[in-house]
Amino acid sequence: MQQIISLLMENKPGALMRVTGLLSQRGYNIESLTVARTLDPTLSRMTITVDVDPNSRAQVIKQMNKLINVLQAVDVTEGSVLNREMVLLRVRTPQATRTSILKEAEIFHARVVDSTIEGFALEVTGHPEKLDEFIDVMRSYGDIEVTRSGMVSMSLESKKLRLSPPVPAAGTMEEDLELQEAE
């Protein structure tokens, strides 16, 4: 079964590599990964779907929380959580089936973003399993091309975020502080 991990991390070069490195060094394959900055532009939110050996799941979360750039890593595989994904899909279709495609699209709350003689480009978001069904349905109408965003998750339970306070740097003495003030 896939493990879904939600991470809050510093938006810094190399931070992504540290997280994915923890998974690749254990030979785990990442199924999907999304990352974007948060309301605070110095932070990023990442959602990873990964096939982790069930016995190692707690260890993986602990190791992620140890990373200096990670503020919080949470296992959101179970519990109260919203999981959504987006699909962009192009379907090539003969004139005859155009109307049925539009009806199907409506059922899945898909939006037409481009329409040509050859077919449609559709955009849809939803739970990944729903999207699998949507893709299957569209495939039955003709050749399709698909791009999936990967899962984004949001926990509906509030987890307390514990951040470490600043510490004085080595060799910081009063005279230094005075020196800085004098500048």
Binding site: M9, E10, N65, L67, I68, N69, V70, L71, Q72, R162, L163, S164, P165, P166, V167, P168, A169, G171, T172, D176, L177, L179, Q180, E183
Partner: peptide, 14 residues
């Protein structure tokens, strides 16, 4: 050069 007076690593738990 201004000496660093504090270190802030919010994600580093000691």
């Amino acid at each position: 050069y201004a000496p660093v007076s504090e270190i802030h690593l919010p994600g580093y738990k000691v």
